[in-house]
């Protein structure tokens, strides 16, 4: 008999397995046509804003080598619609609900959190990193002071754990992670999409109507993994790792790099059952490698890694 235990505890919330959905790549009704949502560890919903947003013009999607670009923007019906129509539907699955939240300014973040405090949402994922919010792809997630400001404003208002979602479009991700931990974050999720672009040579136009968009999928996995590894070294709060996770082997790599849980995004857009497939494959990888818990898996890498680093110059 296997003693495999994949349950995790993220900032005080118990998940029966480490797999959640990446914000913006899941719809309970649409994804639920392909697999049982209640089998997920947790469910993360698309960015919700104070008022409805229409998102950007189409085309909003472009394929790239082993990845995709999106400029969907924060297309959603606003927090009231979320509370009235989306939450009641999600509650039936009886798994933790993580609400991804975005705003124009700190006040908006605070107001959304206050509205959600008395709902069934289990934790907040604060999106300070969506590259589509402001012009030139700038965002709060790009500066430690700004990131810390949003974190402390939300932390004060929130009655649930807050996870800060980091942008990879920065020079030193570790300093931003440290800044949000110090400002009171209960966890970190990473990474959001990398700002990218494509040009259609024949039509002499950018492929996306918005010109630039967020790159996701297998193409970004090495970058995401490296960033999780760097951030794990400087923070003690849980990390939800994401960015190109497509197989059980990918999932194991993220756990080893220091992630406590995992979100599946683009892989699920491509193959709707991906979260379940990856969970099954992760189990198989653990059994094959002889691990019973995610902690053991993580430690096995950490010990080796520390041994290999000792005596060597850090870079």
């Amino acid at each position: 008999m296997s003693k495999l235990d994949l349950s995790v505890n993220i900032a005080g919330i118990q998940w029966k397995n480490p797999i959640t959905t990446a914000a913006g790549t899941f719809s309970a009704r649409a994804s639920g046509e392909f697999y049982g949502i209640s089998k997920l560890g947790a469910v993360t919903t698309k960015a919700v804003t104070l008022n409805p947003w229409l998102g950007n013009q189409t085309p909003r999607i472009a394929e790239t080598y082993g990845g995709m670009l999106n400029s969907v923007g924060l297309h959603n019906f606003g927090v009231d619609h979320y509370i009235d129509f989306e939450l009641p539907y999600l509650e039936q699955f009886d798994i933790p609900i993580i609400a991804n939240i975005a705003g124009h300014n700190p006040e908006e973040y605070r107001e959304i959190v206050e509205r959600l405090n008395s709902t069934s949402v289990a934790m907040y994922e604060i999106n300070i990193s969506c590259p589509n919010i402001a012009e030139n792809g700038m965002n709060y997630g790009a500066f430690p002071e700004q990131a810390a400001l949003i974190t402390s404003v939300v932390k004060k208002a929130a009655k649930k754990p807050i996870i800060i979602k980091l942008s990879p479009n920065v020079t030193d991700i570790a300093s931003i992670a440290k800044a949000v931990e110090d400002a009171g974050a209960d966890g970190i999720s990473m990474i959001n999409t990398l700002l990218g672009m494509r040009i259609d040579v024949r039509s002499r136009k950018a492929t996306l109507a918005n010109k630039m968009g967020g790159l996701s999928g297998p193409a970004i996995k090495p970058v995401a993994l490296r960033m999780v590894y760097q951030v794990r070294k400087v923070v003690n709060i849980p990390i939800i790792g994401m960015g190109g996770i497509t197989t059980g082997e990918d999932a194991a790599e993220f756990i080893m790099a220091g992630a406590d849980a995992l979100a599946i995004g683009t892989a699920a857009l491509v193959m709707p059952t991906a979260p379940m497939d990856i969970l099954g494959e992760l189990r198989a990888v653990m059994q094959r490698e002889g691990f019973n818990t995610l902690y053991e898996l993580r430690q096995a890498f950490k010990e080796q890694d520390e041994r290999l680093t000792t005596g060597r110059k850090q870079w």
Binding site: T58, I61, N70, V270
Partner: peptide, 16 residues
Amino acid sequence: EERMGCGYGACIGCVC
């Protein structure tokens, strides 16, 4: 027709 990401309703890429 519209450019699609997922084709099943999860990404909101294909709006009209």
